[in-house]
Design a protein around this nucleic acid. Structure first.
Lengths: 120, 120, 120, 120
DNA sequence: GTGGTCTAGACCACC
DNA sequence: GTGGTCTAGACCACA
């Protein structure tokens, strides 16, 4: 369900966030579902509990999840936010590319090209 | 020609790389042109020569530039590499977004939307 | 495990790279093993941490090692890359010699000759 | 006759030396032939005369060439030395590779492989 | 003067 | 603690 790639340069806490968001966007996690406890997940993924806690706290701050003292962490309403968070980094990449002088057409071509590749 | 934003969180050496690539992609720098020497550029941008040297060495590794002992740093044959490098981070963002379950259409919509915003 | 000859004219960071590659090729370091931290190794070899970091970053760029923020540097899946890197400079010397007009037989004779010398 | 690649990392004076040696080994230059004057060659190759002079002085030191005050630089006897000089860097590469732990067999395989590639 | 390497010591993000 | 980045200042080989 939640997978981490330690050789990936994106911080692990962020990988956890995205993983959870994917699960919500993909329907695997629905409103009210309980997430594994930080300690549990840390053990499962061989991570430092602090790292998982950080990820959860960010998800909570962004309203994607809410935690109840002593009970655990649950998926919040408003699934849209999970999707937003997923496309957030894409949005900033688009802004960056446009700043770098690329045209919208170029970027759209690239999207089509990569999409085609993936569907092979 | 080459501008740096010290308040930007992206590493300075990377800002230099992109700046040079923009100049090449934009036609301001052509094959064989000499880049300012590391020391000179460092002085100009108020940076440490090592930082500039790091940027240049990365550009060299990527085949965008070649350096000659005792003479300086020159732009190599392009073959579009400068452009590629500029859109590189965008490409990986696209891949990531597709992996996260987004459709090509969604991404294209986002590109159009942000592009429209920018042109306001 | 990793040894440096400061009197050797080849750059220290390259000596470190080769040393690590030798250890991998020789089986002393296996996939997933942790390399000594840059600071630690620097202390051990009486070097500046930056020098070690440079070596590690080159090894990472060549896919021989991967580094994880806050955790350390680990050997990657090899697929023979370490061996390749070790014989890399030999390969280019072969190409150069052939370009200079030497025949493969000549070169093989030289290899045999030097090998015999070494084994004396 | 003499070609220089400025993007090549080997020092230019060394490229000149090798180029001259190739010409001797290949029979294009014979004992007693006059080399272009340092100034002339420098102009031809767009180099600093000092660089050419350095190359010539090395060739003279190695007995491959002799210079006569006011007359110029001439190819010396003993063609063998030119060949030796050409294979010299190959020899050191062999020593290095053996030191790095490669076996003579491995190196011979590499020679055969590259030779086959070249003859395609 | 130019690039390439190295040392010394600093700050940051991440774990 | 770890790696990643940056500054300051030094030495060398090359042109």
């Amino acid at each position: 369900m939640i997978k981490i790639d330690p050789s990936d340069k994106t911080p692990i806490f962020e990988q956890i966030c995205k993983s959870v968001c994917k699960n919500i966007a993909g329907g695997l996690l629905k409103e009210g579902d309980k997430l594994p406890s930080a300690r549990e997940l840390a053990k499962l993924l061989q991570l430092n509990p602090n790292t998982v806690a950080k990820a959860y706290s960010i998800l909570e701050r962004d309203g994607i999840v809410y935690s109840v003292q002593g009970k655990g962490c649950f998926v919040a309403k408003h699934e849209g936010r999970a999707n937003e968070k997923l496309t957030e980094s894409f949005r900033s990449a688009v802004r960056e590319a446009l700043d770098a002088g690329a045209s919208a057409e170029e970027l759209i071509d690239i999207v089509s090209e990569i999409s085609r590749e993936k569907n092979k």
